[in-house]
Nucleic acid binder design. Structure first.
Length: 609
RNA sequence: GCCUCGAUAGCUUAGUAGGUAGAGCGCGGGAUUCGUAAUCCCGAGGCCGCGGGUUCAAUUCCCGCUCGAGGCUCCA
């Protein structure tokens, strides 16, 4: 519900003509005039229909609160549809407005209600003092929850070698951590530029906005899709090696299920709701829902634990604020690897937590992306497990930012967040590990203890890479950061084209194609620039495509065993045999996943996406 | 969600003090068969984001919407 509260000297209205949805009224209600009134212009919205009583309660509380603060003599409830673009049904709106009127009356507040569904002329005179104009968005959520969030504030430290240091006193030798700290403490200044990855993702033919979808949903072109698939393969191998069991679960859930609804509500307004005639569904914002449902229907014993369930959420949905959605960094639909580990007790969860820290750090090394770390815990947890926390922070090998929360307000008691820093100095939150002490009970996940008692487990949430889109985002941002030091490029194992062959003239074409086929047989992603262009132009195009290795084929190559390879990273030319070239690519891609290039071998046959 | 700014060919954009528009890249055709960051010539391609208003006339001015960019979070 939207409410605009105006403390007025006077309000006058006069009904003009009926609309189809007009309520029946007596003649005396056809006009009215009030003095020293708090006028509540009100629009009832679709989502209010789900819990009308809750909305009424909160609206009345809010109106009464402002009423007493401004010292008005009466309240006028004025239906005003123009405050919202998502209106409820007229019947629901009438009911809610009538309820608000009668509940205010019960509180001994003089209240009037202006008729619903009529065209009216009105005149209002705003008093103009600081509280005389207020707008409120009212939901059915309990207001206590909101107040709690605003309670005592977190304490922030830099945790370095077991020492707690106030951020303002810490001598940052690491620029990334300094920027992360500034950002978290709300002290970073913004430059007002677009992050460079947005242009890059379009320019390199990876992904683009899809205006015909909702904001924050992308279309992926073949090259981008290839990179996503390679990253998906990477995480799959990483977690299955650690004993994780992959599953796949639905992307939408019925809010009629209590556990689902309560877990969903932790997410507040950012839920993606899917209205349906009878059911109210939500789109998942992570894989928790599916994993927990699977676990709760499984029979677990202490011998099964720790049990690791993995899913790549293509997609997860979050209704991020419109103005916050940008490029690959913040989306409404994104892909996230999600590992849930069911642990017997807190002790076991801490052992697993440490292993997962290792996993997260390893992804940073494999992607060659620097992460800075925020370690968070409730005060109670920190006090009790200080030693473990210090030891775990030590694993990072550099200072970390530490947040101590006065009390638990989420499902987790401790979590570690890893963030890369983008070109503009802002964090891209990537991997995370969290200790969840609530969901076991809420989703009725139980296991049989050694003593034959049923018990609720501790559950770890872990995304060892963070969302796939954000991984790509950090890789692209990194190229922009390092632009001055070296030519921008993706890691060779993620480069769509790893080797490009440039025949100089028509007569070199057969040799080029034969070479390409051989490289392809060795699992190298190769293509041939067969277009009738000059070498200079083809070289230039290969460079703008960030191709790591370029082989020019001319008369010399036809006659000798050697190839001349342009190496992008070092900008050197090196003579080598075919075998050497394959070896070089293999060495550079070092055990990382491989997929073939899903595009025509010949550039002349490619579509320009 | 709110505020500010923007939207012209597939892409990057110039321009019109109101009289329906040019360029580069890309694309198609032709010539060139060439050794390391753009070969030359020709051609096609535009409801100037969408809807409404003002006007004899709107891509241009005004309003609304959509999409994008940045910022913001009850503060005017």
């Amino acid at each position: 519900m939207r409410v605009l509260l105006i403390h007025s000297d006077y309000l006058k209205y006069q009904t003009k003509s009926k609309t189809k949805i007009a309520e029946k009224i007596d003649d005396e209600k056809k006009k009215g005039s009030f003095e020293n009134s708090l006028v509540a212009f009100t629009a009832v919205e679709k989502e209010d229909e789900a819990d009308m009583q809750g909305v009424v309660e909160n609206a009345v509380k809010e109106i009464a609160d402002v009423f007493s603060k401004v010292g008005a003599e009466n309240v006028v409830v004025y239906p005003y549809a123009h405050l919202s673009s998502s209106l409820s049904s007229p019947d629901a709106a009438k009911k809610i407005l009538i309820e608000i009127e009668s509940e205010l009356a019960e509180m001994d507040i003089k209240v009037a209600r202006v008729p619903f569904g009529w065209y009216k002329s009105f005149e209002v005179s705003c008093k103009g003092h600081p509280l005389s104009e207020l707008s409120r968005t009212i939901t059915s959520q309990k207001t206590e929850e909101k107040e709690k969030e605003k309670g005592e504030e977190s304490k922030w430290y830099i945790l370095d070698e077991g020492q707690l240091i106030a951020p303002e006193e810490f001598d940052f030798y690491n620029k990334d951590l300094e920027q992360l700290t500034k950002y978290e403490l709300g002290k970073s200044e913004s430059s007002g530029e677009e992050p460079p990855h947005v242009k890059l993702m379009k320019e390199k033919g990876l992904a683009d906005y899809e205006p015909s979808a909702d904001v924050g949903h992308l279309r992926w072109y073949p090259k981008g899709r290839l990179i996503r698939d390679l990253l998906a393969d990477y995480v799959y191998l990483l977690v299955t090696k650690e004993g994780a069991m992959p599953v796949e679960t639905p992307i939408m859930y019925d809010l009629a299920d209590d556990a689902i609804r309560v877990h969903a509500e932790k997410f507040g307004e950012r839920q993606y709701r899917l209205g349906h005639k009878k059911k109210e569904l939500m789109l998942r914002y992570a894989c928790c829902f599916g994993a927990f449902r699977v676990l709760s229907d499984s029979f677990l014993t202490w011998k099964n634990l720790p049990a690791r369930i993995y899913e790549l959420s293509t997609y997860s949905f979050r209704m991020e604020k419109k103005g916050e959605v940008v490029g690959l960094k913040r989306l409404r639909g994104f892909t996230m690897p999600d590992l849930h580990t069911v642990c017997r007790d807190l002790g076991q969860s801490l052992v697993e937590f440490d292993r997962q820290i290792d996993l997260c750090m390893r992804t940073g090394e494999d992607f060659n992306v620097n992460y800075e770390v925020i370690f968070r815990a409730t005060k109670d947890f920190y006090d009790e497990y200080k030693e473990w926390m210090h030891a775990s922070a030590q694993k990072i090998g550099k200072p970390v930012l530490l947040e101590i929360l006065p009390e638990r307000k989420n499902y987790w008691i401790s979590k570690m967040d890893f963030a890369a820093i983008d070109y503009l100095g802002r964090p891209i939150e990537n991997p995370t590990v969290q200790i969840d002490v609530e969901s076991g009970e809420r989703f009725d996940i139980t296991f049989l203890e050694e003593n034959e008692q049923e018990d609720y487990p501790i559950i770890l949430h872990c995304s060892p890479t963070g969302s796939i889109e954000r991984v790509i985002c950090s890789l692209l941002e990194k190229t922009a950061v390092e632009m001055d030091e070296k030519p921008p490029m993706l890691p060779v194992w993620l480069s769509p084209t790893q080797v490009r062959i440039l025949p100089i003239a028509e007569r070199h074409m057969d040799y080029a194609l034969e070479l390409a086929r051989e490289l392809k047989d060795h699992n190298v992603r190769v293509d041939v620039d067969d277009r009738p262009e000059r070498v200079g132009k083809k070289i230039r195009n290969a460079a703008t495509d960030w191709v790591p290795y370029v082989a020019v084929i001319g008369d010399n190559e036809l006659e000798s065993e050697e190839l001349t390879i342009n190496i992008r990273e070092t900008q050197e030319k090196q003579a080598m045999t075919r075998e050497d070239l394959v070896k070089l690519v293999k060495q550079e891609t070092n055990e990382m996943p491989f997929r073939a290039l899903p595009l025509p071998l010949k550039l002349s046959e490619r579509i320009n996406f």
